[in-house]
Each structure stands twice: as structure tokens, then as C-alpha cells.
Design a protein around this nucleic acid. Structure first.
Lengths: 220, 220
DNA sequence: TTACGTTTTCACACCTTCTTAACGCCGCTG
DNA sequence: CAGCGGCGTTAAGAAGGTGTGAAAACGTAA
């Protein structure tokens, strides 16, 4: 059975979520603010976190940032409409999905299923984009079943691109996810690593195209 | 890894499909008629269903109808040529795609990829104004589902207009939101960017109308 | 310590995007 | 009618982003 952690300041919302989740078989724990949320996350080791963005004090974004410093636990964002900017920021920081309040329980459960399954498939882990296959467990990449030798940074970079294959990945997104929590300024080096990746992927493989001023896109 | 359910009465076809799918890493289960198919679907909870339209007894269309009463699982239709009417009916009932027998394995797998990805794609914050859609996370714009290539400034400008679609946006508002925190005086350049946007949106798309002396308005 | 692989920094050519300026059009006003 | 201001359009220079090669800094293992 999966364990879910709810971080939300409204008691009513917590009770509603608890009911929905428990009816689905989740084990549920709660936290009423960001500080407590982080403690519970560390102590309870939940399988999924439901995080409200409108927290008082330590905000939802900060909680997410701190969470991501030490865990990849799937995070589902709860937000109200017209928080577009914050939602973008949360997703860039590695949140897995979001639902907008008020939400239907069916939608909530569906999205939980998806991010749970994604995490589950990460235990027999591969990302596939066309002829490219990334084995996340062994940190190995193959292109048309031919092994490709990648450095750790290159692998992380290609992983971010492959996860969103076919779509633009913002430079911000890349920097936040590949160089998460590091002090150096990698904005210069990104170009170099992209260059290396393109060479290793060769002519026949997937192309990494640049969207000037925005980011990169991997197309199979 | 994903689980696929094959519903087809021909054993040969089931064996072929199983081979192709398993080689791609799918977990496969089968059903030889519609009745059994529905049972398997309920019991196995597959991630994708391959459904033959030419089933004896409980027909493919009926199976799809019954499936859709309780699940949105992606359904790929297998049909023979000259079943246009039935194919259309199936798509209207919520089938996700179809392949025509005999089919190439490459085509089959490609279509499976597409409908799987659609299901697993997470939600992106977006602004919608008529046929225009702005994906804020990926910085992608689509007009009637056709991608439109926008530069960063154009995207920001269109975002401001689309957020207040139908209403007037003051020049001051635009300048503050698009050129926030910049030193240059872009009041001249605004006209140029509006011009570019109008060209890229084309005749059929939303119009950007000018309110002389006030600002601009986006009307869908 | 050296040696090696990786990451970062730097320099420069090249390309896209942004800004600026100029000009013509239209509507308004004196 | 002539003058004026706001707008659309176009072109060209300025600014900034990108690709690429090489060298320096870094970390790690022998």
C-alpha cells in the first residue's frame, strides 16, 4: 500500500483529501504548514506528496525546493487558478503534475495513478524516445541497441530532454534539474554539453534542436 | 512497463501481436472474444487495449461501448480495409486510433507510442483564447493545433494579450509586463512586434486590434 | 605524486532577435 | 486645405544568443 503526505494549511481540504485517498487504499499523513511538511516527509518517507502552493510562511515553492534537495518523491501540486507563474516554477523545479482547485476526485486519482505508475516504471527504469533508450538504473544509454558512452552530466541532461521528447525544454528547466542545488553558474557550460551530446548521438540519431532564447527540444 | 490487452478472435493474429508487443517490452494478455475481453479489461487493468473490430458474437463496437462506460484506457482499433463506417463509429465512441490489417509492426508500435504518450503526458499550465493555445511551461504556441514559432518577446507579448483576451490592454500595461525591469524604452518597438505577431497569427487566427491612443485588444 | 576523465571557462565566428529610424497612411483639427 | 499625431510597414544596424574548438580547472584513482 502506498503512503501519501498532504501538505495544506486548510483543515477542510486536508480532511477531504484524506477521505478520497483512504477510500482508494492510501495510507495518509498530514502537515498543516511547510515546516511540518518537510519534517513529515523526512520522517514518514511517503510514496507521494500532495503539496498546496498557497501555504503561509514557508511557501509551497520553497518546500518543493527543499524536498528536491534530497528526494525524488513524486509531488502533485494543488493550486488555485491564476497562479500560472507559480505553477510553471513548480514544474520547472521538478514537480510531477498539478491539479487546480476546485478539482474532481476522479481527476485527482487519475493523476495520482499516472505519477505513481511513472515512479513504478522507474524501478525497471527506461526512457524511450525513438531509437534512443536510457536505462536509469544502470546509467546506460543505447542508440539503436548500440551502447553510447555518456558522462554523468551528459546523461542527466539527455534524461531531461528525453523525458519531454518532442517538446521544448526551457533553459531554466534544464539548469534547475541537471545542476540542482549547485553553486556554480553552468549557463555557459550548457552549450558545451549540448555540443558533446550532439556529437555522440551522431547524424542518424535523435536531433537536439535549439529554440533561440528559450531552450532545446529533442526530436526523434 | 505497460500492460497491453489484445482482443481478437484469430489466434494467429494474437500470436503475432504478442510477439511484437513483448519484443517492445509490453506485458501482454489476450482475449479471444468480446465477452472475455471485457472481463480481462476489468481484471487486468491494461494500460492500452488492441481491439479487433471483426469479432464474432459481441462485436468490437459493442465492446468499445461497454469499455467506455467505466474506463478511459486508450484503445487502438484493428480493422480490415473497407470498414470506413465502422472505423468512424469507433473513433466517435472514443477509440484513440486505428491501424488497418495487414499492418507493419513499425506503424503499430508508432501509433501505440503516440496514444500512450498522450495518456501519460502531464498537465501544463496554459492560456487558451479561442483557437490559440499558449503552453507556459514549454513556451510553445499553437493555433488550431498547428505550432506557431514565436520569439521570446513575441511570446511574452502575446501572453499578456491572451491573458486579457477580449479586453483592452493598455500600452503601459504591456510595456511593464513584457519589458519589466529593462532600461531601454521600447515604446517604439512595440508596434514592430505587434506587426510580427499579426503576420504569424495569419488571417484566420485571432486578431489584434488597435484602440488608438489606448492600447491593443486580442479578439478570438 | 602523476595520469586520466570530466567539467568549466574562454575566445571567436556566426546567426537570430531586438531595437532604432525612416517613411507613408489615415483620421483629426484648426 | 495644411498640419499634426498615432499607427503600420519596412529595412538596417545593434545587441544578444548559439556552435565550436581548445585550454584550464577539478576530482579521482593508481
Amino acid at each position: 500500500m502506498s503512503k501519501a503526505l498532504i501538505i495544506d494549511d486548510e483543515q477542510q481540504m486536508r480532511r477531504l483529501l484524506r477521505m478520497v485517498l483512504e477510500s482508494r487504499g492510501y495510507e495518509v499523513c498530514e502537515a498543516a504548514d511547510g515546516q511540518l511538511g518537510l519534517q513529515e516527509a523526512a520522517f514518514q518517507r511517503p510514496d507521494v506528496v500532495l503539496l498546496d502552493l498557497g501555504l503561509p510562511g514557508l511557501g509551497g515553492i520553497d518546500v518543493l525546493k527543499r524536498l528536491r534537495e534530497w528526494t525524488d518523491v513524486p509531488v502533485l501540486i494543488l493550486s488555485v487558478r491564476d497562479q500560472e507563474t507559480v505553477k510553471v516554477e513548480a514544474l520547472e523545479l521538478g514537480a510531477d503534475d498539478y491539479v487546480t482547485k476546485p478539482f474532481g476526485t476522479a481527476e485527482l486519482l487519475a493523476r495520482l495513478d499516472v505519477i505513481q505508475r511513472r515512479r513504478f516504471t522507474r524501478q525497471s527504469p527506461e526512457i524511450i524516445a525513438g531509437a534512443l533508450k536510457l536505462d536509469l538504473l544502470h546509467h546506460e544509454a543505447t542508440l539503436a541497441d548500440e551502447p553510447v558512452k555518456l558522462t554523468p552530466t551528459e546523461f542527466a541532461l539527455l534524461k531531461v530532454l528525453a523525458e519531454h521528447a518532442g517538446r521544448i525544454v526551457t533553459q531554466n528547466q534544464i539548469l534547475k534539474q541537471v545542476w540542482a542545488g549547485q553553486s556554480s553558474d553552468p549557463s555557459e557550460g550548457l552549450r558545451v554539453h549540448i555540443n558533446h551530446l550532439r556529437k555522440k548521438l551522431g547524424e542518424s540519431g535523435p536531433r537536439i534542436v535549439n529554440e533561440p532564447g528559450i531552450g532545446y527540444r529533442l526530436e526523434a
